[in-house]
Structure formats: C-alpha cells, structure tokens
C-alpha cells in the first residue's frame, strides 16, 4: 500500500494552522474566534501524531501530547464559553467590537 508522505501531512497541518490564525484575526464573533483557536490546536495534534508515526514510531511521546492537548482544549473552551455567557449578559452581544470600554 502506498503511504502518504510525511510532507503532505505537514502541509495540511501548517495550512490548518494559518487558516486558524487568519480566522482568529478576521472574525469578530467570539465563538468563531474560539473555533479558530481549536483549528490551531488541531493542526498541532496532526503534527504530533504524524511526527510520532513517521519519524519516531518506537516512542509514544507525540501521541500522549496530542491526547493531553485535546483534554486541555476542552477545559479551555468550557471556561471561555462561561466567560462569553457572562459577557453576553452585560453587553447583550458576543461581537468583540462591542466590548470596547478598555483601550489605549
């Protein structure tokens, strides 16, 4: 069976990383920004698993790292959504442009 070369997988993960970054900088809805961050974290997961499988198949460091990242991302999303709900209560909006009291 033909294996997919590592380079192709790295291309996908890097593309995903920059798509996430682009989304984070351009989107104004906080939930969508959070989703962009998840894209970044998933690109990191792909990196870890691919490196582990292709380059260092005898150790499991990369796989464990990916599992921990998934767990932490869930925790981070939980706290972030709680904060967003609280923001919605006070601002009646989840657009970052509406939260503009603190500047300069």
């Amino acid at each position: 069976m033909n294996e997919i070369p590592l380079l192709h997988i790295l291309f996908v993960s890097t593309a995903l990383f920059f798509i996430g970054m682009y989304g984070f900088f351009t989107r104004r809805n906080i939930i969508t920004m959070l989703m962009s961050i998840e894209l970044i974290l998933n690109s990191v997961n792909i990196n870890f698993v691919a490196f582990n499988k292709y380059l260092y198949p005898d150790k499991l460091d990369g796989l464990f790292f990916a599992i921990f990242i998934i767990a932490i991302a869930a925790a981070e999303a939980a706290v972030a959504i709680a904060i967003i709900i609280n923001l919605y209560r006070s601002h009646s909006s989840i657009d970052v442009e509406d939260a503009d009291e603190l500047k300069f």
Binding site: G20, F24, I30, M33, L34, I37, I40, L41, V44, E76, V79, A80, I83, I84, N86, L87, R89, S90, H91, V96, A99, E101, L102
Partner: peptide
C-alpha cells in the same frame, strides 16, 4: 462590564498564545 471584557480578552489571547 469591564471585568467580563477583561476576562474575554485574557482567555482569547492566552488560548491563542498557547496555540
């Protein structure tokens, strides 16, 4: 209001930086 805005900025930038 300011407190929730601060928390929103903090969680987004810290999540982004850890990414």
């Amino acid at each position: 209001r300011q407190s929730s805005e601060a928390a929103m900025k903090m969680i987004l930038s810290s999540a982004f930086s850890s990414g």
